[in-house]
Computed example of a mutant assay.
Amino acid sequence: MKNIAVIGAGTMGNGIAHTFAQFGYKVNLIDISEESLDKGMKTISGNLDRMVSKEKISAADKETTLNNITTYTDIPKGVKEIDLVVEAATENEDLKLKIFKQLDENCSAETILASNTSSISITKIASVVSNPERVIGMHFMNPVPIMKLVEIIRGYNTSDKVTKSIMELSENLKKVPVEANDYPGFVANRILMPMINEAIETFYNNVAGVKEIDTVMKLGMAHPMGPLQLADFIGLDVCHSILEVMYDGFKNPKYAPCPLLTNMVMAGKLGIKSGEGFYDYSESKKAEKVSSQFS
């Protein structure tokens, strides 16, 4: 596989495009918004600048990586003669099904279709594709250029050949692929999201403050980031969506989003990307004292 298309220029999409391009793949980065594409490319350039400053790559490597990426606002044009498509759009089932229908209509029958979904059924996504054996989950972790894990999710019909190809491809990116079966939340979020949700419940029940909860988990459990700061980093809307998928899938109340999480999402307090979540990012762009609104 040499030619890759990535759909979605947001946090995950631009990180995936960056990673493939850095390892010499030709990447078509696709988004319906020219503004989103410009923002995504600016993010990639900035991340490459940091790698240059840390002497992890050269300035020439940066230019080569950027030159490996071409942007498109049109899916049919962007997926022409592509070996692999990685969908990294918003975590919304209807949107993903719509995209995969388009991919089925515009891609070669040999093109592997992967989704970066963090919770939505690969089998359900594959149900709208004429040959579902080529559909697979390729769940990268954020930030993609740094994090080593890639969850490889086999749908009910995913072929051994496709799975083997994607496992090998992930290793070519210097990642560690781990295979999982297709159940809500897969492995990573089935374990992570209930912990985040319980941390929110702990704050909601006034057991301790945001900073205190995060400090306990960082110093007591050796987590690099506390669960509430991590929720801000992931996006509270994304956390909420994943919990809803698991709640719908398992019909188990332990996966029901905490009422505080629901209210924060409705109020637009989504974490880093909105400037405020459990911490205030409006000034320094990094976690600070919790907003008085939630203290």
Rank of each mutant, 00 (worst) to 15 (best):
Q293R: 14
Y156P: 10
Y281S: 05
S121L: 06
P143D: 09
N197F: 03
K286S: 09
H223W: 12
I44N: 01
K2D: 09
E168F: 12
I272T: 15
V265G: 04
V6G: 05
G46V: 04
I30E: 00
D83Q: 06
N67P: 06
D31R: 02
V135I: 09
R190G: 11
T123Y: 10
S36R: 13
K54H: 12
M51N: 08
N205K: 15
P194Y: 07
L37Y: 03
G78V: 06
K101Q: 13
T64N: 11
D248E: 15
N181T: 12
N67V: 03
D160Y: 10
G8K: 01
L48A: 04
L243Y: 07
N197A: 07
K56W: 14
K273I: 13
T90Y: 15
K251H: 13
K175C: 06
S118H: 04
T19P: 08
I69F: 01
Y247W: 14
N68I: 06
D94S: 14
V85I: 14
G249V: 04
Q102I: 07
S274D: 04
E35P: 11
E201R: 15
S291F: 13
L37K: 01
H18T: 00
F20P: 02
T163P: 05
S159D: 01
I125W: 05
Y255G: 07
M138H: 03
A89S: 11
S118A: 04
M217E: 05
S292E: 14
D214Y: 00
S130V: 13
A89Q: 05
L103S: 00
P145L: 05
Y156G: 09
L84C: 04
K161A: 12
I82F: 06
N14D: 07
A199W: 07
E93S: 08
I69T: 00
E179K: 14
